[in-house]
């Protein structure tokens, strides 16, 4: 338990050790630690940025989807309107055509009827004449009774 020259030697050794430790231990390890810290910070920043970009993309997608839906709805409503118009037009044309056909048919029918009636009427007069001849037993002068016959025909 004495103080000796060793003390000076240890002071020197300590000074050298501090220098060596700084050069081979403290310096390099701290450098690595700092670099890693920086890398982690950069990674976190990049992750944050990526998240923001993703959020923006999601927002944009939602907007576009919304717009597309609106446009689709518009197109559909237009198409429905147009379809309704087409149907209406077709219906109107059909009704018109039907009316026209009906009118033509009716006119023809009426013509047919009046013609038939005319024929019948004439036949009635000759029939009546024949019937009257049978009843009277003699020939009726058609000319003489033409006036009566015409009246008769008109009554039928």
């Amino acid at each position: 338990m004495n103080i000796t020259l060793t003390l000076i030697a240890q002071v020197l050794a300590f000074s050298i050790m501090i220098w060596l430790v700084n050069k081979y231990m403290w310096g390099p390890i701290n450098e690595v630690l700092d670099k890693r810290r920086q890398k982690v910070a950069e990674g976190l920043a990049a992750a944050e940025k990526g998240q923001q970009e993703q959020e923006a993309a999601r927002q944009k997608m939602a907007d576009e989807l919304k717009q597309a839906k609106v446009e689709a709805a518009e197109i559909i409503s237009q198409a429905q309107k147009r379809a309704g118009e087409i149907v209406d037009e077709a219906k109107n044309a059909a009704v018109e055509e039907a009316n026209r056909v009906k009118a033509a048919a009716q006119a023809e029918l009426e013509q047919e009827v009046s013609r038939a009636r005319e024929g019948l009427r004439q036949q009635v007069s000759s029939l009546a004449l024949a019937g009257a001849e049978k009843i009277l037993g003699k020939e009726i002068n058609a000319k003489a009774h033409a006036k009566a016959l015409d009246e008769l025909t008109a009554q039928i």
Binding site: M1, N2, I3, T4, L5, T6, I8, A9
Partner: peptide, 8 residues
């Protein structure tokens, strides 16, 4: 107690 001629 303090002998600076000695080296351990």
């Amino acid at each position: 107690i303090a002998d600076f001629n000695v080296l351990h």
